[in-house]
Design a protein around this nucleic acid. Structure first.
Lengths: 318, 318
DNA sequence: TTAATGGGTGAGCAAATATTCGCACCAAAA
DNA sequence: TTTTGGTGCGAATATTTGCTCACCCATTAA
């Protein structure tokens, strides 16, 4: 017994030595092998043993390290396909500092592809900031489709519509949706959506390869209300039914279920499919968005996330 | 200016990310590249940037780590060819715990070689313990030679002679030195050493490829006195001349110079050559040995060291 | 405007590292 | 004693990594 223990300990000692020589002293495995008087293969085994036995630890001295950790934890906890966490700056509770840059570079990864892709976008302040960070490029192979109407209640084009803006930057065929976000009635929605071009767009939206959406909160200063798509009373009513957030107009509860309500019945946006096979990025951060994000994650309305440290930490606390 | 700064910061951020993904998350460089949206080459550059910028730190969670550090420092400070430091256990001030094993495995490295080698050994408690740790093997290609006489003043063979013991274990031709450590007079030494076989042995000792010796201290309980090779008065006398230690009977001062004294003139051991090209291991540890070791190191009587953490630390303090 | 400069890039190759496989060894069980 | 399961080894092989080189592109100086 003691013998066996001894032998194991010795092996671990050697592993530690090998790990030290390899990582700390910067020897290669041949040198490690020579210094330890063993074959190179054995040295390699010892090094990998040192790693697998956690004798050797890697530590990253950089603020980014925390973000990477959070990202992995979020992926784990919410079963995300992708997750990026940007470092906090000042006011991480309210600022989206840094997110647009990361979102833009994520988008660019897809845009750089030669293979034609359909990219779907929501609207909102965050996405708007994101596309402003995109670098100019020629992407005639891709199609950009809007999931959500761009017509404000007063008839003007929504100033947060992103499709028009992105068109300049990346020179791709683009498909804005000339509809209000929320129709006046169920009938109106039906008529509007039955238009041939709109049907076309909806069909495109159904085939999307990757989606980027913001997430709206439903408490005070809800974007839907702020932009005049719903009234304060409608807001109160739907919140009383459990609404915590909204994606391209679809209002959901804390489980991520779309609430059956007269508002949702009039939403003219493309439908959102829970648990999509394709990447669906939520691009969102902030204290007042936490519950909305949690809902979206619960219902798998999104399967990827771009957020900041603060928000990531809050999400992990729940 | 700010722009350039930003770009550099971003690059470091990416390097940190790459380093994290590579070392902490265990991705390979292709995966890192994919996740960062860059080419593999770029990912590789980022990873090596993370190393060269010291963003990533390696830490070894194992007692061995400290030993390796000490070993490197000792090598550096005393210009050693080899140095092994074994982890402290209980009573590192007096115990040689662990040293025999390491010394034995060091010896085995040489013994395993197919190329014939001449291996020289001193005597002493530590070396004796070392050869007891040797595993049995057939080494007819090597020759083992003793540097020091094995005859005690009373005519018996010294019980700490290691040559005889090692012969059983490794089945190599061996050359014990049938002499007292210290002759009764200069004339006796000359006569003894002029014997043909002894001359042969001394010549062999001169060609040694690698040497292992203990180091004796000269203060209270000096091994030379304990074993009856010198009297207490002789000890006192030579200590008053600056003696701090002895190797195979040669007594030296704190500079490592062999003291010109009537004792040293009678030492019948093979001469020790300072600053040898070949490896000369001192195998030694303990509080009361520190000054002796320091002397031997100063005079380059040894150029390699096997010791324990405690001793290593003490040596570095001086 | 053009030419030089310098940093970054990908391709391709060489070096280093990881893995797989068959074998030998050892210790516990039969 | 033989068997058996586990473990480590070297050799061969597959994969990964590091390096060099030619090139590109943005910036700067002429």
């Amino acid at each position: 017994m003691a013998k066996k223990n001894d032998r194991e300990t010795n092996r671990l000692d050697d592993a530690a030595r090998a790990g030290w020589l390899y990582y700390v002293a910067g020897n290669n495995q041949d040198e490690v092998a020579a210094k330890l008087g063993v074959s190179r293969q054995t040295a390699q085994r010892l090094v990998s043993l040192a790693i697998s036995e956690k004798l050797i630890k890697f530590r990253l001295d950089h603020p980014i390290a925390r973000c990477m950790e959070l990202s992995v934890k979020l992926k784990d906890k919410f079963d995300l396909k992708k997750c990026k966490v940007v470092p906090d700056d000042l006011n991480p509770e309210t600022s989206i500092q840094g997110i647009p840059e990361v979102c833009a570079s994520t988008m660019e990864q897809f845009l750089k592809s030669d293979e034609p892709k359909i990219i779907a976008l929501g609207t909102g302040r965050v996405l708007r900031a994101c596309i402003e960070q995109l670098t100019r490029m020629d992407c005639p192979q891709h199609r950009i489709v809007s999931l959500v109407g761009n017509i404000a209640p007063d008839g003007s084009a929504s100033s947060y519509d992103v499709i028009i803006r992105i068109a300049d930057t990346i020179k791709a065929p683009h498909y804005p949706m000339p509809l209000p976000v929320i129709a006046a009635s169920i009938e109106e929605r039906k008529v509007l959506q039955d238009q041939k071009p709109i049907r076309n767009i909806l069909q495109l939206a159904d085939q999307t390869d990757v989606t980027f959406v913001g997430i709206g909160h439903m408490c005070k200063d809800a974007p839907l209300e702020q932009d005049g798509f719903i009234t304060r009373n409608e807001l109160k009513s739907i919140v009383s039914q459990g609404a915590v957030g909204e994606i391209v107009g679809w209002i959901f509860d804390k489980k991520g279920n779309i609430i059956k309500d007269s508002i949702n019945e009039r939403v003219a946006s493309a439908p959102i499919k829970p648990d999509s096979e394709k990447l669906v990025f939520g691009v969102v951060a902030g204290k007042h968005k936490i519950n909305a994000i949690l809902g979206a994650l619960q219902g798998k309305l999104i399967n990827s996330l771009i957020t900041n440290e603060y928000t990531a930490e809050q999400l992990l606390k729940k």
